[in-house]
Design a binder for these strands. Structure first.
Length: 276
DNA sequence: CGCATTTCCTGGTAGC
DNA sequence: TGCTACCAGGAAATGC
């Protein structure tokens, strides 16, 4: 999405901005955007960050069902924000978000008060800062289940429910393994798997399950390449065992009980507290 | 502070 | 067909 928006939006000015949803913290500060110039289109994790002139910053997050569209989808319901831009058409931007889990707000640049996840976001998974050594240090600090920790956005940015399941499966790590209990090998595998899954998903323009569309209305193609997410009950593509579904951190979690073992073949006499 | 649970919200669908 | 009940989940808020 960032790649699509960058050439379109960079250098344009916000001529007007209209909030069509009930006001609230998810949409705060929009009135300050009018008249400002969009200086760049950046991204951190799942947050889209648009520095504006005069030291402001527009922050967008799609939540579950959010979409940014460059043209008015016919009969589109749930348009929450409409932005009119300078320059030639298309010069209207629509933030459409049926469930209103998304965010679209303007802040003083870099002031992420009220956005604790963004303020404490881990390194970019595809950036140079995300090294196996740093990842290992982060995991050592937490006893919470690895999947829960990944979803917190702290050890690494941008990993959501789908890609967490996919990466854990690739790395053969059980989603309930305490983060600090991952072996060096597992940590390294997971690091590589996260990068590979996210790189491939970005390459495929994301994953469209139902709502997600690219800015130009296209579908995210990674849904075709999902190995486990949404495939509970089907055979594991690697070993053939039946994929199971559990709830971890309140989220549906699909995993292979054969490939992804909590203690990775260690003797079962381990004194470590049982992971279930 | 750390961690777990609840909340927000609507479309889709299972079940009757 | 039409109704109800429930499920999906990112991040913040709340509870302990």
């Amino acid at each position: 999405m960032r790649r699509e928006l960058e050439p379109w939006l960079t250098g344009r000015s916000v001529e007007s901005i209209e909030l069509l949803a009930p006001p609230g913290p998810k949409y705060r500060g929009l009135e300050h955007a009018a008249g400002r110039r969009i200086e760049a289109v950046k991204r951190r994790g799942k947050f889209l960050l648009l520095p504006l002139s005069d030291g402001l910053e527009l922050i967008a997050h799609l939540g579950m069902t959010g979409v940014i569209a460059g043209s008015a989808p016919a009969g589109a319901k749930h348009v929450r924000v409409r932005v009119e831009l300078s320059g030639s058409a298309p010069n209207s931007l629509y933030f459409i978000d049926p469930r209103r889990f998304g965010r679209f707000l303007v802040v003083e640049r870099g002031n992420y008060d009220g956005l604790p996840t963004l303020a404490a976001l881990g390194p970019e998974p595809l950036g140079d800062d995300f090294t196996p050594a740093l990842f290992s240090q982060a995991l050592a600090r937490s006893q919470v289940a690895i999947k829960t920790y990944l979803l917190s956005q702290r050890p690494v940015a941008g990993v959501g429910n789908i890609y967490a399941d996919e990466a854990l499966w690739r790395a053969r790590v059980h989603p309930l393994t305490p983060s600090a209990a991952l072996s060096a090998e597992q940590t390294s595998e997971l690091h590589g798997a996260l990068r590979a899954v996210l790189a491939a998903a970005i390459e495929a323009n994301g994953t469209t399950l139902n709502d997600y569309r690219t800015v130009s209305g296209g579908l995210g193609g990674y849904v075709e390449r999902l190995d486990v997410y949404g495939h509970a009950g089907a055979a594991c593509p690697r070993c053939g065992a039946e994929l199971l579904r559990a709830v971890v951190a309140g989220r549906g979690t699909t995993y292979c009980p054969d490939c992804q073992r909590a203690s990775k073949g260690k003797p079962r006499t381990s004194r470590r507290k049982a992971v279930r």
